[in-house]
């Protein structure tokens, strides 16, 4: 019979301890975690730290290019990376539905462990809860992350004319989720962009004086992220649609489903705001990374008082780029 997660795996007793030792300690193996204290104790060297948290509730749990575990590590690490920080430590909270397959949990934990090793981030504390069958759907994961600030751009002022760089193809994660949710079988191989940004931001250290802001366009896609940036810096943004990296198959899939790729999530990309004089050098540096080879300057800041984001279309027309306001649903015809 399939081994399944039971309520006693979260009751604080010996079964929980067994689960922690056999699964979590095995895969997240590091001395801080294994010291088995109520709190993780660690030393820092820098003066400024970045701290973030995110909960991962996704369907399907496994998708081409990743799974909820990889997403939970990359997502939080990326939030740290775009804050100009080197991701150091993670906490992980699992909320698991009674009856969840042990084998699937192991797959998720294994994938998290692999992702952590990739950029040297450590899971140093965690928590497990098991809830009654039917009161949730499968597994939810929360990760909080601490990073060491390497580029504090909080005091840098974004100015009209500053360039906006997109590090890679948009909508690749959102498209695969839409594809799975609508049960469409596609011949093309769609793969999520779920992955780290830190390998890129780490390489950009020599250019940090020219980087004024970074953001990862997750839920709501680049349209929503650009609107948030415009609002935050109180400037307008002008984007050139044909410069936005978008894979042809992803574009075709979006047209088929009647959804706009500009609103679909990326899970391994970043938007960078850079000094125009340095943008070419920065682009070259990003392109030298495997996950940055499609990087492109997609637009610039304008003086528009209403902080609107406008999009120049490939035919030379123009329209507003609005933030996501209602849930995206496929159109009728």
């Amino acid at each position: 019979m399939d081994k399944r997660i039971k309520l006693h795996h979260g009751d604080g007793g010996k079964y929980m301890s067994k689960l922690i030792h056999e699964l979590f300690y095995k895969y997240f193996d590091n001395s801080i975690l294994l010291s088995n204290n109520d709190s993780a104790v660690f030393e820092t060297i820098g003066e400024s730290l970045a701290f973030t948290t995110d909960s991962y509730i996704i369907k399907p749990l496994f998708f081409p290019g990743g799974d909820i575990g990889k997403l939970a590590v990359c997502g939080t690490a990326n939030d740290l990376a775009v804050a100009g920080a080197k991701p150091l430590y993670l906490s992980v909270g699992f909320i698991i539905e009674e009856g969840f397959l042990y084998e699937e949990l192991e797959r998720i934990v294994q994938s998290m462990s692999q992702a952590c090793k990739e950029i040297g981030i450590k899971v140093i504390t965690g928590d497990t809860k098991v809830v009654e069958k039917g009161s949730m759907d499968g597994i939810f994961i929360n990760t909080s992350g601490i990073g060491l600030i390497e580029n504090d751009y909080s005091s840098k002022k974004v100015a009209p004319g500053d360039h906006i760089i997109m590090t890679g193809g948009i909508a690749e994660h959102g498209a695969i989720i839409a594809l799975k949710r609508h049960g469409i079988k596609a011949r093309e191989k769609f793969i999520s962009d779920c992955g780290f940004i830190y390998n890129i931001t780490e390489k950009l250290v020599p250019f940090y004086n020219g980087i004024k802001l970074m953001k990862d366009p997750t839920r709501g896609g680049i349209a929503t992220a650009l609107n948030e940036i415009a609002e935050r810096v109180q400037l307008g943004i002008h984007v050139l649609e044909h410069k936005i990296p978008l894979r042809k198959d992803v574009s075709a899939l979006c047209r088929l489903l009647g959804i706009d790729p500009l609103y679909l999530a990326c899970e391994g990309r970043a938007i960078l705001v850079v000094e125009p004089s340095q943008s070419e050098k920065i682009i070259k540096c990003i392109r030298s990374c495997e996950n940055g080879r499609d990087a492109s300057i997609i637009g610039n800041f304008t003086c528009k008082e209403d902080n609107s984001v406008t999009l120049e279309t490939p035919i030379g027309g123009e329209r507003l780029l609005y933030p996501l306001d209602t849930p995206m649903l496929p159109r009728i015809c």
């Binding site: 999009l311 279309t313 027309g317 123009e318 329209r319």
Partner: peptide, 8 residues
């Protein structure tokens, strides 16, 4: 609207 032709 989406193609931007409205502005042209």
């Amino acid at each position: 609207s989406h193609s931007g032709i409205r502005k042209m």
